[in-house]
Structures are given as structure tokens and as C-alpha cells.
Simulated scan of single mutants.
Amino acid sequence: MPETEPWEYSLYIPNDPRAVTVCRRTLRLVLALHHLGHLTDVAELLATELVTNAVRHTKGPAALRVRWSGSGVLRIGAWDADPSPPEPPRPFERAVEREEGRGLALVRACADVWGWQPLAREGNRGKYVWCELGRTA
């Protein structure tokens, strides 16, 4: 049974494509430990797309953030040091025809809700792209 207490994890990663696999495996373990295995497949897909975008389209470090609300909402997000907004997702039907540029289209299609926000802290700038599972939009 899923936990009713909220929790949050952050995994800071270097700008290295191999870090995407580390994030995916870490997320799988976190969800299993918190009895949220039923969300694993979709959560892994979403996290992979968000972290891949952070690593592929920026030059600095990144982070995977996972938060359970305690009331049934799982938020998955990727932080990166580039404050530029993400490219708007293409319509899903057009995005699946291409090898690149379909990440946010998959996120939009599979998540209940998604978004992004610019971040600034102690002179550092960046953005946070997130999505949620377990909520109706």
C-alpha cells in the first residue's frame, strides 16, 4: 500500500548521458521502497525524458527530483542550470515520427499535468521542468 506521508528525493547528476540510466534505476528503487511499483513504468519513461532533455540541451549539472504528496500525487522533475524555457512539445502524432524532439510530447501525453518554471537561488539560474502522476488535470 502506498505511503500516506509525504517524501522527497533529489539526485544531482553531472552533464553526462550515462547519468540518465542512474536516474532511471534510482527512481525504480525509490518507488519500490515506497510501495509505488504500480507507477514505475510510466514514472521511468517520464523521468528519462525530462532528465535526457536536461543533459542533452544544457551544459551544466542537472538533478532529478521526485516528490510524493502523501495524498496520491507523484511529482517528477528535472532541474538544469539553463534558464531558457523548454521547447514547446509538438503534437504527439507528429512527434512520434521523429527520433528527436518527442520528449515533452511523451511527457504531455503520459502525465496528468506538466509544466516548467524558472529558478534563481543565490545568484544561480536555471529551470525546473516537472510532471505529475495520480492527479486529474
Rank of each mutant, 00 (worst) to 15 (best):
A105P: 02
A95E: 13
A32R: 14
P86F: 03
D82A: 11
R56F: 00
V42N: 04
P2S: 05
P2H: 15
Y12R: 11
P6M: 04
E93T: 09
H35D: 12
T136Q: 07
H57W: 01
G123D: 02
Q117I: 07
R56M: 08
L106S: 14
G103V: 15
R98W: 06
D41K: 11
T21M: 08
T26S: 14
L64I: 10
T48C: 06
R75N: 00
A120Q: 06
P91K: 09
M1T: 02
R121G: 03
I13W: 07
A120F: 07
S71I: 09
L39M: 04
D82M: 13
V42P: 03
H38E: 06
L133Q: 00
L104T: 13
P14C: 06
Y9N: 08
R135H: 11
S69Y: 13
V42D: 01
R90C: 02
Y12G: 03
H38M: 14
K59E: 08
P88M: 04
R125I: 03
E132C: 05
L50R: 11
W68N: 03
R98T: 00
H35S: 04
R125A: 14
S10I: 06
L46I: 13
L74W: 14
R56P: 00
R121A: 14
A105G: 04
P89F: 13
P61V: 02
L11W: 13
K127R: 04
P86R: 08
L74E: 02
D112M: 10
I13V: 14
E97N: 09
G77T: 05
